[in-house]
């Protein structure tokens, strides 16, 4: 059997809100292979954020199995999850989530700092990563000196710097105008063409259609899983 990069088996995430039981994820199963570009799409409250948190090792499921690179992540401790996030996953957030009091280089270095990489190598890799997103000449600038699109590129550089096996983008264009959104999406596509596995979480069908494969979540379940073309025909039409 071929090993998948991400393997979700019957994932449940159940929150107890007082008397009410909320099933944010109600038995989700799918797998993603290395090199894919997948969009997980769903409305607000559909459970897409919950499944993103689980894929991103920010949270563990109530029930079900999650294998990342063949490693069982579903039942890990806090610190083990931190290790997975550090080594395997590069996050791109809607709000960029850069630390405002650090310059770009320091921001991009952070994952390497927590990975225990030495200072010289850290500088070098962070600078390379920033150069890759076209910000190689403003290493010492502070995040608030940049435009939104530039900040998002810094966060992409930060996501790439640790050579993760998965890049997880949560509404990566949510705070950007359409032109910059285009740039960011094109850049993500380029990264995918270079062999990176990319998962985009979005509520926006037009963004989702940029991916090759789309998984639609509704009420905590997968209601569509297939190619973008099929999605266009079946769901949108």
């Amino acid at each position: 059997m071929q090993e998948h990069l991400i393997e979700l088996q019957d994932i449940y995430k159940i929150y107890q809100m007082g008397e009410v039981e909320v099933r944010a994820n109600d038995g989700i199963s799918f797998s993603i292979d290395a090199g894919e570009m997948v969009a997980i799409v769903g409305k607000s409250g559909s459970g897409k954020s919950t499944i993103m948190n689980i894929i991103g090792a920010l949270d563990v499921p109530t029930a079900g199995k999650y294998y990342l690179n063949g490693i069982d992540v579903g039942s890990m401790s806090d610190d083990e999850l931190a290790e997975i996030r550090n080594k395997q996953i590069g996050f791109i957030f809607q709000q960029y989530n850069l630390l405002p009091k650090m310059n770009l280089l320091k921001n991009v270095e952070l994952p390497l700092l927590y990975a225990g990489v030495g200072e010289a190598e850290r500088h070098q890799r962070a600078a390379e990563s920033l150069a890759r997103v076209g910000l190689g000449d403003v290493l010492k600038k502070m995040p608030n000196q940049l435009s939104g699109g530039q900040q998002q590129r810094v966060s992409i550089a930060r996501a790439l710097v640790g050579n993760p096996s998965l890049i997880l983008a949560d509404e990566p264009t949510g705070a950007l105008d359409s032109k910059t959104s285009r740039e960011v999406l094109d850049f993500l596509k380029k990264l995918n063409a270079e062999g990176n596995t990319i998962v985009i979480i979005t509520h926006d069908n037009s963004i989702a259609l940029e991916a090759k494969r789309i998984i639609r979540i509704h009420d905590g379940r997968v209601v569509f899983d297939g190619a973008a073309d099929a999605y266009r025909k079946e769901v949108i039409a």
């Binding site: 920010l58 610190d79 550090n86 080594k87 996050f91 952070l110």
Partner: peptide
């Protein structure tokens, strides 16, 4: 809190 969240998402362990 947000800074701590960012750091943790990037792989900071509790001891860090």
């Amino acid at each position: 809190t947000r800074e701590i969240g960012i750091r943790k998402s990037l792989g900071a362990k509790q001891k860090d």
